[in-house]
Amino acid sequence: MRIAVLTVSDTRAEADDRSGDTLVQRLGDAGHVLAARAIVRDDRGAIAAQLRAWVADPEVDVVISTGGTGLTGRDVTVEAHRDVYEKEIDAFGTVFTMVSMQKIGTSAVQSRATGGVAGGTYLFALPGSTGACKDAWDEILGYQLDYRHMPCNFVEIFPRLDEHRRRK
């Protein structure tokens, strides 16, 4: 899969983007291709614009963002993702919470991790912590983005994500 990594932060630069680095390393180790990488400030419109640009890019199959999924006033990544989604993958947030509960207990309720689909592209919003990015990749995305994972995975249905747009 060709995966774009988006870091949402007012303070990070590529030199100190540990969560973005973690995702890039893990996707590469799994045999995926880094299609693009960017850092965008905590601004709903700017985040949504970057997501839409990558959804429109035929060289991007998956977008994973990190940061801005919390509860503070500046945390608008989830809202930006939902502005772009055609369909939300409701269970992604639920499964992420289950994974997080094993690591951080009830503090998991503070995350609003989400996933969805738009324009035949998968989009996932992860918390900004390196640990959360590791957990999401190691326990969910690493499996779902592997065509060998059974009984089912995101890769096998990828060609059908935009079938409603094709001519009949």
Rank of each mutant, 00 (worst) to 15 (best):
G142P: 08
R26L: 14
Q110W: 08
G20N: 02
K168G: 15
S107A: 15
A118T: 08
T114I: 15
M101W: 14
W137V: 04
I89L: 15
A38I: 09
E59N: 10
N153K: 11
W137N: 05
R37I: 10
I64V: 15
Q110M: 15
T66Q: 11
H149N: 11
G119R: 05
V24Q: 14
R82K: 12
L145F: 07
M150N: 13
G131Q: 07
Q102A: 11
T114Q: 12
L71R: 06
P151G: 08
L27D: 02
E79N: 04
E156P: 01
A35T: 06
R167M: 09
I47N: 13
R112F: 06
R165N: 09
T11H: 04
L23F: 07
A53R: 11
R26S: 09
D138A: 05
T72N: 12
V60Y: 08
V62H: 07
D17M: 05
Q25I: 00
T130A: 10
V33T: 14
D29F: 00
V60F: 09
R26C: 03
A36T: 09
G142F: 04
G28F: 00
A46N: 06
R41C: 14
R82M: 09
I140W: 00
V78C: 13
T121F: 05
Y122V: 02
S19L: 02
M101I: 14
V99H: 07
R12C: 11
E14Q: 13
V78M: 10
Q50G: 11
Q144V: 01
G116R: 02
R26N: 07
T66F: 04
F158C: 07
R167V: 12
V117K: 06
M101K: 07
A13M: 08
P127W: 00
Y85M: 12
I89F: 13
V95H: 06
H149W: 14
K103C: 03
R166S: 13
G93P: 12
V117Q: 10
L161S: 10
D138G: 06
H164S: 14
D42I: 07
G93I: 05
V99G: 12
F96A: 08
V55Q: 04
E79R: 05
Y147A: 14
P127D: 01
F96N: 04
L141Y: 01
I64W: 02
V76S: 08
C152E: 05
T66E: 12
R165L: 15
D42N: 15
G128M: 06
G105C: 07
M1K: 01
A4M: 01
Y85P: 07
D17V: 01
A118E: 08
I47L: 13
Q25K: 11
I64Y: 03
L23H: 04
G67N: 03
G28K: 02
K103G: 10
T94G: 05
R2M: 04
M98V: 13
G31L: 11
A46P: 06
R160Y: 14
R44H: 11
G45K: 03
T72Y: 01
G93K: 02
G31M: 11
E79G: 07
